[in-house]
Nucleic acid binder design. Structure first.
Lengths: 175, 175
DNA sequence: TGTACCATGTAATGGGTTACATGATTCA
DNA sequence: TGAATCATGTAACCCATTACATGGTACA
């Protein structure tokens, strides 16, 4: 795979949970090559254009597997600018807050429908021995995430629109 | 509020959606002071210890409100190392994957119970005019997020444990 | 009196983005 | 022949973390 290919991957499949620009990818690939974790062969495309086809080395594979098995729970929960805005939304008008919420709902819905499109590629749950099973689990997680985000926004909007609410009694039960 | 106080806030309430270390806070406060968005008064604690009590300036308030009303959807979805690991988990053994999933479930459960403790502070849904209403919405969002994460892990673990599955027929219905 | 916590800062470094910069290939 | 896309890289900068560094206060 070339660095260019990887950049494309980050724009599509991997986008749901990670991203990187080509500038970072190229510098990182150079560093990994020096470290001995990957190497590359040059392929000629057309007459002169050199493509660097990267492969993982045994040392890289070892390092990767070490990471893959590790249970590092760093940087969770993730930073989320919208939640930050919402937290301080008592400083703006009710209309502005409602606008924020409805815009966010639209955005979450858009992501959700895009994810559901991706789900069409699976006509059944892949067997757990297949490599597609991992992809399926991650996609399922992303869909659940966006479904929950949509529900969250819908509830929040409903609460904003309610005319009156008794301060005691209604706590958490939906309806 | 002092920079020290802010650092504490990031470790507790704000932690669900943002974080910053004291080193960043102090440098940022200096920059904001130079920019005229905040200012401070020195208070003496004890005999000599100087505390810088920060306040927002009118210019700062204006800038804040501008941001607060803006619908910037940058950096979504968030980077998530666990989802990245899961995506590539077809490279490790079934046992290692199961371990990853159960460890993550434990972690999500811990977060969830912590969030539910915070919910105890509200004996009812705050009226939408109150400043606590924003806090409530964000807390609700965090709880929904972790509940969904737990459900996701439970489903994933179940799928891993199933002995056999017919490749056609069962798509998405739970049970 | 010593330990936990209050309180503030700087330096080095890492991870990541935006912008700068170049050139080849493919296809209409 | 020109536009979209393939393909690779560097430089400047920003945000953030870890580690370094200092000293005061409260309380047992």
């Amino acid at each position: 795979m070339t660095g260019y290919d990887m950049a494309k991957e980050f724009e599509t499949t991997l986008f749901e949970f990670w991203s990187a620009k080509h500038s970072q990818i190229y510098t990182e690939l150079s560093a990994l090559t020096v470290a001995g974790f990957v190497n590359y062969e040059i392929e000629i495309s057309g007459n002169v254009l050199e493509k660097k086809m990267y492969s993982i080395t045994p040392a890289g594979k070892l390092e990767f597997e070490k990471w893959e098995k590790s249970c590092t729970r760093k940087s969770y929960p993730p930073k989320d600018e919208f939640r930050l805005q919402l937290f301080f939304s008592d400083n703006i008008s009710a209309e502005h807050r409602r606008n924020l919420l409805t815009e966010q709902l639209t955005y979450y819905k858009k992501r959700l429908s895009h994810l559901r499109d991706n789900l069409q590629k699976f006509d059944a749950i892949p067997p757990k021995e297949e490599s597609e099973f991992s992809d399926y689990l991650v996609l399922m997680g992303a869909i659940l995430r966006e479904e929950t985000n949509c529900k969250w926004m819908e509830t929040a909007i409903r609460l904003c629109e309610e005319k009156e609410r008794t301060s005691i009694g209604r706590t958490n039960e939906t309806k």
